[in-house]
Design a protein around this nucleic acid. Sequence first.
DNA 1: CGATGATTGAACTCATGGGTACAAGCTATT
DNA 2: AATAGCTTGTACCCATGAGTTCAATCATCG
Lengths: 213, 213
Amino acid sequence: MSTIESMTITRGQADRRQAILEGAFTVFARRGYAQACVKEVAAEAGVAKPTVYNHLNDKATLFRQSVQAAAQVVLDERLAALEPLKEPDDLHATLEDVGHRLLQLHTDDRSCALRRLLYAEITQFPDLIDIVVENGPHRLTQALADRLARLTLAGRLRANDPDQAAEQLIALLTGPLEARSRMGTRQIDDAELHQLARAAIRTFLATFGTADG
Amino acid sequence: MSTIESMTITRGQADRRQAILEGAFTVFARRGYAQACVKEVAAEAGVAKPTVYNHLNDKATLFRQSVQAAAQVVLDERLAALEPLKEPDDLHATLEDVGHRLLQLHTDDRSCALRRLLYAEITQFPDLIDIVVENGPHRLTQALADRLARLTLAGRLRANDPDQAAEQLIALLTGPLEARSRMGTRQIDDAELHQLARAAIRTFLATFGTADG
DNA sequence: CGATGATTGAACTCATGGGTACAAGCTATT
DNA sequence: AATAGCTTGTACCCATGAGTTCAATCATCG
């Protein structure tokens, strides 16, 4: 079938492009933008240097595309982590679980590398702000605010300003990480993440909780 | 007097070194480490390129020293901002004022540039962690925890774990900034900083406050 | 005034790395 | 089998910038 074969062709090309973008992100994460060389990206992706330039115009687009792809993955993971808040049985326990999951995602290698890269190159690539930041933290806060609003309507929370509540919950969760992880260079073990999540939820519920969990 | 004159000599040399370090930080903040060139640093400091190499061995030490100097300034400013907590009259109002001051310092140009530079180059300069992070955020949290502990002993707060309380207070204050300032690229007006400080202190006191302010 | 030492500008060396050219090989459609 | 399009390795061009050298200049001190 020509359709299947053409599928395999385009699949093969798409796979190659995908491999290049993933290799590029790996190398950029390891070295930073300026120190990363395209030769190393090609090696990481298992292709030749001219092939890289065949798929992406230049180093800058290579960077933009790879960062954008990584950001998409990271955002999807976080949005998925909010799912349990749709039908929480034990609200306190569910909040702790979701918080813990968010902390795990926040501290994983890809996420830390992405954050470092954005901070590093945001002045050189200001267009990444719109592409990544607006579609990243902002949409996560929005999605969380939606959940908190529903829970408030159901009488299980007192978050009259759900946007602010979501903002503060995320701050309570991830804020302490920056110092503790020494800017993402130290791994934090799971027990410590649990502690942080419990402490964050305790403070959050002291302000926004109701009598019945 | 030879002492005075030798003072002026060393003063002159020290001033030149100081000018070079400040110019270096300005240029590094503007371009990032790799994109910054020593020629531009020399121009910013108003000296010739060989003079830079006469005071600092190479570009790496130039970077380390300039970042370290900037971090010292930033830390001192923040520690000074905690002073009002020593003898608070109206505790709620004092906390809001201190919080607001911390937010102002957190969003000023030098502070944002320093944060970006650290995130950017921390993998290339891992020794900066010990020099800067330990003496920066960590010592601020410690100093704040000291204040909260005193206030708890005086019966004006209920921060039985002052380290955690300090950590969460700083998180409530500065966490929302990252998203709102779009990683330090957007200026936030003072009214918005006031709002953020008020919201943070409200949540903080809901957990750690007592009946009598 | 003369000497010592820092400063200056300009030219230079050298390594790095982005990006391209080209010839040879591989793959898939006809 | 044959043609067309990617891919590959290698070699190359060229811009950038770190770090140095050197002769000339300036400031400071005895």
